[in-house]
Design a protein around this nucleic acid. Sequence first.
RNA 1: CUGGGUGUAGCUCAGCAGGGUCAGAGUGCCGCGCUUGGAACGCGGAGGCCGCAAGUUCGAAUCUUGCCACCCAGACCA
Length: 466
Amino acid sequence: MRCRRACSDTCPTFDQGFMRLSRFFLPVLRETPKEAEIVSHQLMLRAGMIRQSSAGIYSWLPLGFRVLKKIEQIVREEQDRAGAIELLMPTLQQADLWRESGRYDAYGPEMLRFKDRHEREMLYGPTNEELITQIFRDSIKSYRDLPRNLYHIQWKFRDEVRPRFGVMRGREFLMKDAYSFDLTAEAARHSYNKMFVAYLRTFARMGLKSIPMAAETGPIGGDLSHEFIILAETGESQVYCHADLVETRAPPADVDFDGDLAPLIGQWTGRYAATDEKHDQARFEAEVPADKRVSARGIEVGHIFFFGSKYSEPMGCRVQGPDGSMIAVQMGSYGVGVSRLAGAIIEASHDASGLVWPVPVAPYEVGLINLKAADKDTDKACADIYAKLERAGVSVLYDDTDERAGAKFATMDLIGLPFQLIVGPKGLKSGEIEVKERKSGERMNLAPDAAVKRLVELVSARRVLA
RNA sequence: CUGGGUGUAGCUCAGCAGGGUCAGAGUGCCGCGCUUGGAACGCGGAGGCCGCAAGUUCGAAUCUUGCCACCCAGACCA
């Protein structure tokens, strides 16, 4: 989110990430609104991240919006790393396009349909296979322009019969969807593998343990469909896997996406992993030693699959091959539930006091607490620390309000910033301020400058995937 | 969509069975005082078309009917 270069505020991507709580918009709730059932929903409401607009439709308040943007950016960076190319398609689409693929009738009432003023039939896109296929076929005519992978991050709408779990199953949701185009099924497998690897890195960067699990393959069959499940105690579905998978590390940043990814993929697909629907207890017991059997709760955050010419054939998306023949392209699509991830991360990372953000997705990296606002010494110390952190490129939410200490602690714990810097008159007298890590609760007292230095080290170390 | 439930202050809720000082509490918000390291305390105050609409009645948050919204269980799902 923050520009990595030492650029000024004239840089359009610059987001300074500094805020005084006295000027922020953070409507926290002390009590849990009754409509929220699961913990992520409750905490998102309480921490002032979201507000429900209507069933399954939410506004993202500043704190939540920052998290959403961070998640989005990680997804983007890993898509780019894997060679996918970003574009942006509209939310509204024409019914006629969907008639080409036959899905206008096949898609149920989940698809929101309506007419514009000219009585043209429109729909709010639940997904974009048709549109991307149209875009691609209208422009690409040669096999020499393959392979390509195009993605966008856009709001979708599925009129779920029953939205629930807050942003985890909303009707309107932000999704990254990528679409690959290849000449042959074999080449498409490689495109698929790239996304597979990108997903492992994407979720790992957000501090999540994600496990790919074989999923229904649809009309094509084969083994090219996986759901990426993250483990969380409060997960919505039951999952089973080999314990080693949980410990397997995500691929490094310098993985060669043009090389043979099969061995890497094999590390993940070689061991048993299945969701409820595909679980085979007998096979599980036969393939996994008793002490390695993991039975846990999980949340689906990504889904990748290959569908060959399902859309390219009926929609006439063909390219001319080396021999001059017209060949329908082989496609795959790859989704990540961006807004859902905000909820999923919380399900995987919270405690009795509130949210516990992993640094890479934290709305701010540090919460600076002035225990006695309007006190000359604490104000000065805080202003100094605030400026130093800013210079060091650490994002800070500075609680400069005149609340009581207890209330400040409670609020800061609730919103879950990874680190807290606590500055009070007592500590300052002995030349110390307190650094607290939200997750472990560990505290240390350091001189202000040492605290800033330590904090910068801690934050930097946790920003990147180890 | 089927079944169940809930709509009263920003949030959490009481009050409805037997209509009539019932417009209430806690919390949050505003002001003052006293406080100041884990959601202090005291006093004062603002805030509600009791989901909406019809109806019954002298009188309805309370009873009747209809509608709407939201929540939960199921089927469905990034």
